[in-house]
């Protein structure tokens, strides 16, 4: 049977994809950012996930103002890196896992989640930057990916409670899939940032730290944070953190934090990254 034993949270900052793509990620000035992923790149080689359910938000790339799905799940065979205005990122095509994705879709809808099924889409930096940060520069992504796009662009985003519940439902669904697959869930986005208005550039380090401190054990409290509180405390884009709660919901109640990285700033944003493992019962 398929199983989930680890999860990962990370910001998905477009500039970092750009730096990798132009070959600058080894430069000393970026070491404080990229060194925080050294552990991760080793760790992922040992973990060898078959499939990553990659939770992210589309940034006005595939979804425009016509249709704005709250939760969209990618069931296609493959997803192309999107042209976000200066050509597509020179990274590999993202291979989907359509059988598992359709299984999850059916299970989630029957569990009462109102998914939008997506059979064709391009994926933007929200999805490809985490892949680059975790896997580095590769010829092929070493796993298949199920994109799970969450609306955080138009108010309101789904609540923290709803995201946590979606994570739990995802785990249920994964565990019913008959193939032996090692599945990971990644929550991406955040941490504090605000890209507009006189208050642009807001960064709340204590808030971000508190969030990461609480995610292992006190996640129920985090799920109660409203979008208005996220905005007030951590900026208009800070509410992307609800996507980390989908990852957390997909893991057991007891998890071990095996890695953490935090850096301010990357362009307008606080970068956060965390890895959780479950204890494997033998």
């Amino acid at each position: 049977m398929a199983k989930i034993q680890a999860g990962l949270g990370t910001s998905h900052i477009p500039l970092l994809g750009r730096i990798m793509d132009i070959g600058d990620s080894d430069k000393a000035e970026w070491a404080p950012v990229f060194s925080g992923f050294d552990f991760t790149r080793q760790w992922i080689k040992e973990q060898k996930p078959d499939v990553v359910i990659l939770v992210y938000n589309d940034h006005a790339t595939t979804f425009d103002m016509k249709f704005i799905p709250t939760f969209a799940i990618g069931c296609a065979e493959a997803f192309q890196p999107a042209d976000e205005g200066y050509g597509a990122r020179p990274v590999p095509t993202v291979k989907g896992a359509p059988e598992l994705a359709w299984h999850l879709t059916e299970s989630l809808i029957l569990q009462g989640f109102d998914m939008t099924i997506v059979n064709e889409m391009d994926v933007d930096h929200g999805l490809t930057v985490p892949l680059s940060m975790v896997f580095g520069e590769v010829e092929e992504w070493p796993c298949r990916v199920i994109p799970l796009a969450v609306n955080t662009v138009v108010y309101p985003a789904p609540t923290g409670e709803r995201c946590l519940a979606l994570g739990k439902a995802l785990r249920e669904a994964v565990e019913q899939f008959p193939e032996d697959l090692n599945v990971q869930v990644w929550g991406t986005g955040g941490m504090s940032h605000q890209l507009l208005g006189e208050r642009a550039g807001l960064i709340n380090q204590p808030w971000d730290t508190e969030f990461m401190d609480s995610l292992a054990d006190d996640y129920q409290r985090l799920a109660g944070i409203s979008q208005v509180e996220y905005i007030r405390e951590s900026g208009t884009e800070g509410c992307e953190m609800v996507m980390w709660l989908i990852m957390r919901g997909a893991l057991k109640a007891k998890v071990k934090e095996v890695h953490r990285h935090y850096h301010v700033p990357v362009s307008n944003t606080a970068l956060g990254h965390i890895i959780f493992e479950e204890e494997v019962s033998q």
């Binding site: 069931c75 065979e77 359509p98 059988e99 359709w102 299984h103 879709t105 059916e106 099924i117 064709e120």
Partner: peptide, 10 residues
């Protein structure tokens, strides 16, 4: 018309 059929017939 389930996921299998939708994949075949996209």
């Amino acid at each position: 018309f389930d996921g299998n059929m939708a994949r075949k017939g996209f």
